[in-house]
Amino acid sequence: MKHWLRKRPAGWVALTTGFIPLLFAIFLSFGSEKPAVTIDGESKQCLVCHGSHRYELTDTLTGETVTMKMHSELQIDPVEYSKATHGAFKCTDCHSIDYHIHPHPVSTKFEVNYTCMDCHGGDETYASFNFETIEEEYLKSIHATELGSEFSCWSCHNPHTYRLSDKEPGQLINRVARNNSACLHCHGDINNYAVLIEKELPDLIISHDWLPNQSLHFRKVRCIDCHAANNDSIMVAHLVLPASESVKNCVECHSTNSILMGSLYKHQAAEKRNKLGFYNGVIMNEAYVIGANRNYYLNIASVVIFIMVLIGIAIHATLRYIHRHGKHGN
C-alpha cells in the first residue's frame, strides 16, 4: 500500500484530505408509559373467556363442557386493557349487567354501545379536550358522511386498548406508529375494510407513490397530518378529508410555516425559532424537515458571505479592467 501510494502521490493527497468521519455515539431516549392499573375481580371473570383465544362453555343440565373459539373482535388483551385510558373501568360500567349471565342472553346482542359524547358531552372535567368540537369535526369527516352509523368513535379508538399518548414523552416515531395503526386497521386490511364499505381497497404504496422518500414519511408523520384538517381548538384533528382534498403540496410541511407545527408537533412547546436560530426547532428533537428547519443565523451568514464574494469579484474585475484599459491606452 505504501509503495503503491508513493507511486501515486495524487492518490495520497486524495486519501489524506478526503473522507471525513461524520457521526458517532448513540443516546436514545425512551419514554415512559401510563402505568398499568389493577383489573377488578368482576372484570377478571369476564377476561377468563374474553382474554383468551378459546373459552369453555358448560351445559348446566348435562354437565357437558365444550371448548369454543373466541371471535377476534371479542378478545381483549388484559395487559393492554390495564394500560388503556379506560382500563380502570369495570366491564359492566359500559356493558349490560346481563353479561353476568352465562351463556349471555339474547338481550345483550341488542345492547347499544356508548359513544364518547355519552360520557364526555358537557363534561367539565374534560372540557380542555373540547369533545363537542371533536364531534362537530367528526360529523363533517369523510368517515361520518360516507359511512354514517357504520362508523363510530370506536372504529378508530378501540375502547379496550386506546391510550391518550400524544402528550406522553417518548419517541415520536412510536407515537406515529401507534396512531397510524388505527388507520391501517381498516386501510391496510381488506377484511376490516370490507366490513365497512363495498369498495376496492386502494394499495397505499401505489396511491402514495408520488411521495418522495415514502417509507420515511410513513414512519415519521401520521396519516392524519395530511389527511385531516387542523383545528386549533382540539388537540388532534378529527375532520378526516377525502383523498382528493388531502395535503399533496410538499411545501405545506417543508417551509417555515409548516403545518406540522399545528398537527404532529402541536403538543410540544412551540416557538418560531429556537435558541440556535432554527425555525420550527421543536421538530428537530425527533427529525429534520427540509425547508421547515432552516436556520435564521446561517441564512444571514450565507447571504453575507455570498454578497462579500460577489463584491470582492466585482472589485477585482474592475481593477483588472482599469489596469488593462490603462495599459492599452498608454
Partner: peptide, 18 residues
C-alpha cells in the same frame, strides 16, 4: 435516513447530517 444515528449528544443525527 435509517442508516443515520438517531441522536448525537442530544441533537438529531439527521439534522446534523443535513
Amino acid at each position: 435516513p435509517e442508516t443515520i444515528i438517531l441522536n448525537v449528544f442530544g441533537y438529531s443525527g439527521i439534522m446534523l447530517t443535513s
